[in-house]
Design a protein around this nucleic acid. Structure first.
Lengths: 341, 341
DNA sequence: CGTTTTTCCGTAAACGTTTACGAGAACACA
DNA sequence: TGTGTTCTCGTAAACGTTTACGGAAAAACG
């Protein structure tokens, strides 16, 4: 069933070298023979063996996406990433690349998995998500010189890798602006406790905007917890115990917001009535929660496509002859006003 | 940076054949040389080149999961599959296999993508989801003799492939039983219009249970639409126009339920008060919707692990020496009672 | 000590490609 | 006709493994 380049050669009575050249569109092959080869390839149902070309070319034609589940929360499953993956995959497929998804156990930071992928040369490049402030994965990859790109920024590495991130800083500021415009002065911020970079960016925007409005940044209104529902549930009461409790809360994450709203409900506080709630990264859950949560929405699928392009441009084997590489982009988050603020 | 088996051989002054045998744990190698090889492998940071072994062994050590997005709905992103993938990946990784995720554009049935994977020998086996009643992918794979397994049953194929499915029939019946016990007699069923197999199973269980309770099956209370929010929104009013409208609706899918509830709301009908709503496959959305939707929950992560095992057992290259292969399993769905019925 | 068995290892082929190199034929040009 | 150029193709090596085969050395056995 498997027909190789040898079968074609035998069938046409020419050498495998010529067949390969014809297939790969090289110039030094007669137009007529090329036609015959292509024809035979169709009738014999030929398609190249990937292992063979990988071995010869030293390229696997696949990229690995290191997907890390939320620490601690299995049931809640990253709806964030699926549209992103769809876009990513679509663009990669256009260039004949496959997408390998590598997941760790929840919470494990998968440095080991990453090493395995790199050392066994399983992929031509890797894509990192959930970037941290200081990210050892980035250090490792730059050190060994393995092509990669990141979804999210980091302070690690030589800044010489492509990255695409959302403008969490602006979203944080926008969220504050909006709440201030609606009369709020006591605005809490709840973010993940890990050194996930977007948490920092969000907080920076939050702080900056508050100062711009002449509102003092109150440490009692800032809290961090596990980036899941339990984390939001645990940490939200903390900001409520402030001497001067907040009238609005901005959550950095949908799952934390959900947990936070549960805690609020248990305190008899109704989001959208007694408390304004905003969440920074929108997911379907925000939309269907009651009250529907005002949130900032990313354009996930286009982001996936874009990052695929950036990554492709950074792989020597696939980079076209065109100009300089795209290094870093920051995309906006769009406000989706709903009922919770 | 890449150290090959040749490097090890040169370093130890032995032949590459011996190195390979030592690494692969074959019997015909001296215990001492083996130790030295393993030692050298560690210090020289050796790990086998995947392309090389794939080419030689004719096995890629990866399996492809054909993930198909919901037709028509991008934004809503398959939270169903992530926990499944986590389990799947974990088990595959144990056996040293990688997971390749192949996604089509939403709605495209990806027969072409499947052919490409098979013909380029990109994976050792494929995993199919969203099985249909008559599934051409299954026909194709059985015809060409490519190893595969399915998440979901089908009538296609020689029934000689591993499959794991949920007991939608029982869930449909259980849902009816529960609603009847709560006094309902007019119970509607809304399912996807495609010939997705779980839709048939669900409906079969629904019918059987109604008859068991001596309730006539009314075609006016059965409707089908696109398997997304828009589909539920469009089709739900149809069953409400019955001369004798339902007092309960069972949705076969969370997205359809969400759309259906929207339609109900616009008619002034409140789920949980004026209408009992049950959904067959639980997702986080069901939990956070208001009212929280009573739903039947699958054990997704264990299912992923199990199906990985079944698939592994069906690949000649990886099947252990143990007994007969696991062919088909049907797992229960567990009722999660919430506020909507 | 001679014969047989076992242990261990080296040799080389094979998996399916791609590609550097060189050579023959055809052609152009003077 | 002689020389140089262009087209086109075959040859063979290489990518990094695994493994069938055979042989030398060591061990076992009488």
């Amino acid at each position: 069933m498997a027909s190789s380049i040898h079968d074609l050669a035998r069938h046409l009575n020419i050498s495998i070298g010529t067949v390969s050249r014809a297939l790969n569109g090289r110039a030094d092959v007669n137009a007529d023979t090329r036609k015959r080869v292509l024809e035979a390839a169709r009738t014999l149902n030929y398609s190249p063996n990937q292992s063979g070309r990988s071995l010869r070319q030293g390229a696997t034609h696949s990229i690995a996406f290191m997907l890390q589940p939320h620490p601690g929360d299995q049931q809640y499953g990253e709806p964030f990433f699926i549209p992103f993956l769809i876009g990513l995959q679509a663009r990669l497929a256009e260039s004949g690349l496959d997408l390998i998804v590598v997941m760790g156990a929840p919470g494990d930071y998968q440095q080991e998995r990453l090493r395995r992928v790199v050392e066994t040369r399983r992929a031509d490049a890797v894509l990192l998500a959930w970037t941290r402030r200081e990210d050892e994965r980035i250090d490792y990859l730059t050190q060994v010189g393995f092509p990669f790109a990141t979804l999210g920024r980091s302070r690690s590495g030589a800044k010489s890798y492509p990255s695409l991130d959302l403008d969490f800083e602006k979203a944080g500021a926008d969220a504050v602006d909006r709440l201030v415009a609606r009369g709020h002065r006591r605005i809490a911020a709840i973010r993940p406790s890990l050194d996930l970079n977007f948490g920092y960016l969000f907080l920076a925007g939050y702080r900056k905007a508050l100062r711009r409005h002449g509102i003092e940044v109150d440490p009692e209104l800032i809290a961090s917890g596990f980036i899941n529902e339990a984390g939001g549930y645990e940490v939200t009461p903390r900001v409520m115990r402030s001497k001067d409790p907040p009238t609005a809360i901005i959550f950095n994450n949908d799952a934390m917001a959900l947990g936070g709203c549960k805690a609020l409900a248990e305190m008899g506080i109704r989001p959208g009535h007694d408390m304004a709630v905003t969440v920074i990264v929108d997911t379907p859950l925000c939309r269907y929660f009651s009250p529907a949560l005002t949130a900032f929405r990313p354009a996930l699928e286009p982001m996936g496509q874009r990052l695929a392009e950036m990554l492709l441009a950074s792989i020597p084997a696939f980079a076209g002859p065109e100009g300089p590489r795209i290094m870093r982009e920051v995309w906006p988050l769009e406000l989706v006003a709903r009922d919770s603020d």
